[in-house]
Structure formats: structure tokens, C-alpha cells
Simulated scan of single mutants.
Amino acid sequence: MTGRTLLAVAALGAFHGLNPAMGWLFAVARGLQERRRAALLAALPPVAAGHLASVAVVAALVTATRSVTTSTTLTVTGGAVLVGFGLWRLLSRRHFRWAGMRLSTAQVAGWSFLMSSAHGAGLMLLPVLLADPPAGGHAGHLAATPAGALTGLLAAGVHTVAMLAVALTVAVVVYGVLGVGVLRRVWFNVDRLWAGVLVAAGVVTLAAAI
């Protein structure tokens, strides 16, 4: 995996960290509910773990099974899924509702996994991962599965570290300065921006395959 690819997955992680649907708003709510910053900080690691699992599933599958002959199929399929999912989120009038605040660590991680999957977090890595040259193997043959899977897990790890760093920064600033009273409008704007980026990524992916 090239340095440019790592920077790209880290940038996408930073973008995910800005999205309140990916967990920082949940962490802020926990901190305000228990009236202590430690509760906010404790909520973020399981949120990151769930996000990592969601992204790793897609990243490992893509990098472990890609080959020269299957790249076009993966690209077209992934691009179509990105466009379709993004349009659904963009046109949908429904918003995901926050779960109850009294959740265990495992439940928070599970919630984060479902939320990240529902928002297409792993799908956002498809254009980057499919643009990276296959790791080993000859034209027309599958890349080495263990090496490919490890590459995908590395991408997911870098992505999640960047996501956690940004989410932590935003959560601490919001908790200490802004509060949550003005976040309803911000949530709407970021949610629509997120959907628009999904569509744009899908279009770019499909254009690269044609």
C-alpha cells in the first residue's frame, strides 16, 4: 500500500470523525448526562472499535480478493452501490435515532458498527483501495489472500485512528464550549453532505472503470 493511499484513507477517516452520526455526538451526550468529561472519553474507544469492524470487513474483502481480471467488476459494483446508497441517504427524509444512553461497552461498539455500516463507512474506501495496485500475484490471478487481507486491515486501522483523533477533538470542543443545543441544524447539513460525498465517490469510481 502506497503512502498516497494511506493518506487518502486517513483523510476519509478524518471526514468520518467530523460526522456526528459516527459517534462524537453520542459521546458528548454521555458526558453531559453524567456531567463529567471522563464519561465522554470512555464512550469513544468502543465507538471507534465498532467503526473499525465495519470498515475492516469491506477493506479486507476488497484487498484480499481483487485481481487484474476482477478489478473492473469490483469497481463497477462498488461504484453502483455507492451511488445507490448515497442517493437513498440524500433523498430520505428519515434520520437515524440515537439509542438510549445507558449502554454497555459492547453495546456501544455494536451500535457503532451498525451505524457505520448503515452510513456506508466501509464503502467510502472502495475508490481508494481499488485504485491501489494489487499486492503480488500475476495478471489474471488473485492476489495473495493473507497479504491482501492484512493490507485491508492496515487501511482500516489507519482510517480509524484518524477518525478517532478528529472525533475526540470535536467532542471535547463541543462538550466544553458549544453544547448540544445548536447541533440539530449541523446534524442535518453534515448528513446531507455525507450522502452527497457517497454519490460523488460512486460516480468517480464508475468513471474510472469505463
Results as ranks from 00 to 15, higher is better:
R37Q: 03
L164T: 03
P45G: 12
L61P: 00
A21N: 09
L18P: 09
P133C: 04
L125C: 04
T205K: 03
A42H: 12
A106H: 04
W24Y: 12
A165C: 02
H16L: 13
A155C: 13
V203I: 14
L154I: 05
T65H: 08
L41V: 00
F15Q: 08
L87V: 10
G110V: 09
A147N: 07
G100H: 10
G13K: 03
T75V: 03
V177M: 12
L40C: 13
L193F: 15
T73S: 14
P20F: 03
V182K: 07
M22N: 08
L153M: 01
W88Y: 08
G17H: 07
A48N: 04
L7V: 11
V170Q: 06
R97G: 09
L25R: 05
H95N: 09
G196V: 08
L32G: 06
V47S: 04
G157S: 15
V173Q: 09
S104H: 08
A42W: 14
V9Y: 11
G196C: 09
A139D: 13
L40Y: 09
L130E: 10
V190M: 15
D132H: 01
V76P: 12
N19C: 05
P45D: 14
A49M: 09
A8L: 12
F85G: 03
T151V: 01
P20A: 08
A48V: 02
V108I: 15
V174N: 03
V170C: 05
T145D: 11
L193N: 02
T69K: 06
P20M: 05
Q107C: 07
A27Q: 12
W194M: 09
G3K: 01
V83I: 15
R36N: 15
R30Y: 05
T2E: 14
A99C: 05
G31Y: 08
T72E: 15
A195N: 04
A167M: 10
H119E: 12
V170N: 06
L25M: 14
M124H: 07
S92A: 13
V182C: 08
S71W: 13
A80T: 03
L123Y: 11
A29R: 09
H119T: 07
S71G: 10
A43S: 08
S54H: 02
L183K: 04
A165I: 00
A11E: 15
M1V: 10
V177K: 02
N189R: 04
G152H: 03
S71I: 05
G3C: 01
L142P: 00
T169S: 15
A155Y: 05
V172K: 00
T77D: 02
N189L: 11
R184M: 10
L40T: 01
H95L: 12
A60M: 14
G13R: 02
D132F: 02
A14P: 02
P46Q: 09
P133W: 02
V57G: 12
A167K: 03
L206P: 00
N19I: 00
V203P: 07
F96D: 15
S104L: 10
T5I: 13
L12V: 10
V76K: 06
R37G: 00
V62R: 04
T70W: 13
F15W: 13
V166L: 15
A56S: 11
M22I: 06
V28A: 11
W88K: 00
T151D: 11
G136V: 08
L123I: 01
A195S: 12
F26E: 14
V166T: 15
A60D: 10
S54L: 10
R30A: 14
A144F: 04
S116T: 00
G157P: 04
T72N: 14
L150K: 04
A11D: 14
Y175V: 00
G17V: 07
